[in-house]
Design a protein around this nucleic acid. Structure first.
Lengths: 150, 150
DNA sequence: TGACTCAGTCCCATTTCAAGACTTAGTTGG
DNA sequence: CCAACTAAGTCTTGAAATGGGACTGAGTCA
């Protein structure tokens, strides 16, 4: 399978991974969530090769996850901002971060702590059911073919 | 940056991606959550090259995400099962799936529907705060350096 | 005995990646 | 006016990862 053939699949995970599933993209998005917006800032923080960064940003813009906005003319300069579609990735990103915290933080504790502004507490993420609000685990879920499965 | 240098980083996302962040691993885990356990079943369902699958499975076993169990002797055969650590990835995986559903399903609807066995409803995933139980979005969260940040 | 199964390993051509030089448009300092 | 500098890239080149397919080994089945 070629990688961009994934987007043709009828699996939502495959389609998602076709957008954000490569080695660098989620790290780029992590920085975007930390309000990094400019090419050279991404580069400096990630140590990513210029060519690869340029390509990833272009792809994310093409997919509508980031948008390119002019922040100055003369010389013309753009910055990359998360769209709503990009912001929607936050739960997935935070779940991955918290998995890392839980399983790799060691005794020193997690490198980053997240505070929920609404309630003021440090928290970790819990996946819950949109219908009943209860926490959901892997074995509480039944996956069945949906309307878009044919 | 070489990819496995990521595991040295003090960012939990980077450490997580060092384990599950490559092109194939999350698709392998998707199958594992669907109770696929054997080498050739993974292969048949994913179309992944044998070499790459063998390497990914070995890496996941090494990281404790899967475990290798004997399911028959003569000839000796093993299967791969999710450990608790592996099961803990479910929220992240489901969040990615639901992001794909939301943004790429089109009018046909999602290819797979998830039913919450506990309450009996079809649902989508919501990320909520472990402290107050309210849904959490990208801009409700303040990230600060934690104890493991030095 | 010969075909078949499962779980790999090995090899090679193609693709992707990393690192760093180069480019372009404009600004700042002397 | 000239040189140095900045931001956001593109280009080139060698190294690494991937895909596809052949091969292996232990054992079963007809």
């Amino acid at each position: 399978m070629r990688w961009n053939e994934l987007s043709d699949e009828r699996c939502s995970l495959a389609r998602t991974l076709a957008v954000v599933g490569d080695r660098w993209t989620l790290l780029v998005l992590r920085e975007a969530f930390l309000r990094v917006r400019r090419f050279d800032d991404f580069r400096a923080r990630l140590g990513i090769a210029r060519r690869v960064l340029a390509e990833r940003l272009a792809h994310l813009v093409e997919e509508g996850v980031l948008e390119k906005q002019v922040y100055q003319t003369r010389p013309l300069r753009h910055e990359y901002r998360l769209t709503q579609k990009g912001l929607d990735l936050y739960p997935a990103l935070l779940s991955l971060v918290h998995w890392g915290d839980h399983h790799y933080a060691g005794r020193a504790g997690p490198p980053v702590v997240h505070t929920h502004k609404t309630c003021g507490h440090d928290f970790h993420s819990v996946l819950s059911c949109s219908e009943c609000g209860e926490p959901v685990g892997a074995r509480d879920v039944l996956a069945r073919p949906g309307p878009g499965s044919a």
